[in-house]
Design a protein around this nucleic acid. Structure first.
Lengths: 227, 227
DNA sequence: AAGTACGAAATCGTATACGATGACTATTGC
DNA sequence: GCAATAGTCATCGTATACGATTTCGTACTT
């Protein structure tokens, strides 16, 4: 799994507007365009070899997803995340990830567990030789394994949307709260145990929620300003 | 509160593309355009007095919200809800409404409770002289009262999105499962009691979830095909 | 020197035009 | 009579063009 935007259900890369959407989204999510970057329609259109109309459509779609801030007659910029927005997003993610995990749990087999555990162990290694970027990527991989059997695509979409929204805070776990990453790995293992042992959906959901909430709480506890 | 689309956070009715978005959305939500209705860009553009470009942008946004089905080089139609889609939407709503209720509960005051209770009593009257349309509207009003203090606008948006998505199934409660509406009113009262008495967030969330799930379950139990 | 007014440049917003694609229909061959 | 095919029509997709709005720099005034 490469470091690209999480694929949504809406595939169909045929039209130029869709290509532009995918391209700009990828640039935002992978960090090529950082928050505050000005997205001038004409420039992007020229870069992509398209005209402005499909590019504009793409940007507006990204605005609806919260990845872009659009001001009438002024222009578009890559959206940042202020503390309030961060709180909203994390809270929402906590809820939808909890639900996604609980719904997926009964469908997760032994092979999936093994795969997730392998990813998690690699995350533990990343803690040794301090590799935040890879850690973050593996973290997403871990949860992707859990969610890939999620029977409700709407909920899965909401999870992906949240992840993309947080993409501008790459390796935030490390940057904001030093000890948090270690706890995170342990929580992953605990979550796998719950799923393995066939714990109740309610317990699994609560554990998954807490896993996300804990990161938010750790941030709120030290009230460190976000970049 | 009139029977219009639930207002989203994205106001700004300035540009024609936004006007077109609001107009078509309203037509879909209030039932002027029923599922399957063909949305020909040129026709809508002419009706609104705009050109096709802003209309196209509006339609694409509605597609992203699931209200419109768009086929490349073919055209757009108002999206229907098949049983699978219904299940996904109701399941997701159950989760986000549960969360929204739990988050809102501590902020709901006595005046809000009284207002909600009045609405609920009026719903009960609607059951007497069989007024499904008004019943559905009041049902939305009831939940709007509960949610108006929701501290997380993202979650509130998801709730509104779900409601709009279900708009094509006007008065579905009556149509699908006769007894369901009575239960619904009772569940509302029970929910108000829980909030009044300061029940735990977990209990309130569970009750709110069940309230939505029950409608889904009732439908699934009789497996009546959706229109 | 600071503030204001004016004008130019940048950028967006949308109308129009035309090419591309798929759907529909009539015709032809069997 | 039916099926395949060609041609026409409807509709979308996007390029281009131009008007509208905002921003920024500059000159002027007090």
């Amino acid at each position: 799994m490469t470091e690209t935007a999480v694929t949504e259900s809406t595939a169909a890369a045929g039209s130029k507007s869709e290509q532009a959407y995918a391209a700009v989204k990828a640039w935002i999510v992978d960090g090529t365009f950082t928050p505050g970057y000005r997205l001038v329609l004409a420039v992007i259109a020229k870069d992509l070899g398209f005209s402005v109309v499909p590019v504009r459509e793409a940007i507006r779609r990204l605005e609806a997803e919260g990845l872009v801030k659009f001001e009438r007659n002024v222009g578009a910029t890559v959206a940042g995340i202020d503390p309030t927005e961060y709180l909203y997003t994390m809270q929402t993610l906590s809820i939808v990830e909890g639900a996604a995990t609980a719904l997926s749990a009964p469908l997760i087999g032994g092979a999936d567990i093994a795969r997730a555990r392998a990813v998690n162990e690699e995350m533990r290694e990343c803690l040794q030789h301090f590799d935040p970027v890879r850690f973050t990527q593996l973290n997403q991989d871990f949860h992707s394994v859990l969610f890939e059997h999620c029977p409700n695509p709407h909920i899965l979409d909401l999870v992906h949307r949240g992840w993309n929204r947080l993409a501008s805070l790459r390796s935030s776990t490390f940057r904001f709260v030093p000890g948090r990453a270690h706890d995170s790995v342990d929580e992953h293992e605990a979550l796998l145990r719950l799923i393995e042992t066939g714990a109740s959906a309610d317990n699994i959901e609560k554990a998954a929620r807490r896993h996300r909430s804990a990161t938010l709480d750790a941030y709120l506890a030290q009230a460190q300003p976000l970049p």
